[in-house]
Amino acid sequence: MDSHQEKPEAPVVLNNPVPVRHPGRWISAIIILGVLALFLQSLVTNPNFRWDIVGTYILDTKVVQGVGWTLLLTVASMVLAIVLAILLAFMRQSENPVFRWSSWAWVWFFRGTPVYTQLVFWGLIAVLYPKITAGIPFGPEWFAVDTSTVITTTAAAILGLGLNESAYLAEIFRAGLKSVDRGQEEAAEALGMGKTKIMWRIILPQAMRVIVPPTGNETIGMLKTTSLVLAVPFTLDLTFATNTLANRTYLPVPLLIVAAIWYLVITSLLMVGQHFIEAYYGKGVDNLAPATINPAAAKAAAAVAPSAAAEPALKMDFPEEEAK
């Protein structure tokens, strides 16, 4: 592609072939667009949507507070889950068989039971263990507190969601750590790096490339799983807030739309955040310092042959011919 022409050559006459026609594509596109148009029309003309009610409640105090609580539950339970998942993934790789076994058992249990069941369970923890005590087993007690003062409904919701999620994330982290070439660890070992430094500075940053996309998926999933905290019962989240309003107004459809709009807005924001995190951890692999891309060269190459424009921008990165 890099031309080495010294002497002027005869201008290239491009083939410019007549492309194959695709009538099937046109027909299917028209059908899809037609259905979409009908749906959009119904949104406007069907009075049962009650857009006026949607407008009234979209910024309702209860709804906005519900959005806040849903966000808090999502963030708090994901943070808890990520911390636990890193720990579980490290334990799973440990040379200590007790660590490996307990990590496996944790994943087995929390992935193997429904999150709804776990949420109900955390809500009932005070019934099962009325007091939390510290002391020596079968020996003296140092202090004791009522479980219900420590595990509030908020704490129960976060624990229920976070512990369940940690099991899934642990598997994602384990896959990520395994995806890093063994040679990376050897190179770091040969430089005299300690185990902890190798993990945090060499292995994990590379594993993150594999870990971030599914974790983003899980975060978006968690956003919507928070609607199950009613099981605890936790009654301040977005879904509970809109359901309450729907029951009060006997207008379930517009309030479901209110909730759906908010979930979509938050999901969209999370996707933007994920994009930037992916770019950060893709450094050197997917994300090759955009500053080195030479737009002039790309343009020149595209002018020579139209098909060259379809070549990955990556190729323009290396001015030297010696680069692969």
């Binding site: 070439d181 005299g192 590379q206």
Partner: peptide, 16 residues
């Protein structure tokens, strides 16, 4: 190991 440098067949540079 700090006193011993090693060069690998597959380079093993840190890609990030």
């Amino acid at each position: 190991r700090r006193e011993i440098g090693m060069v690998f067949q597959r380079f093993n540079l840190f890609p990030h």
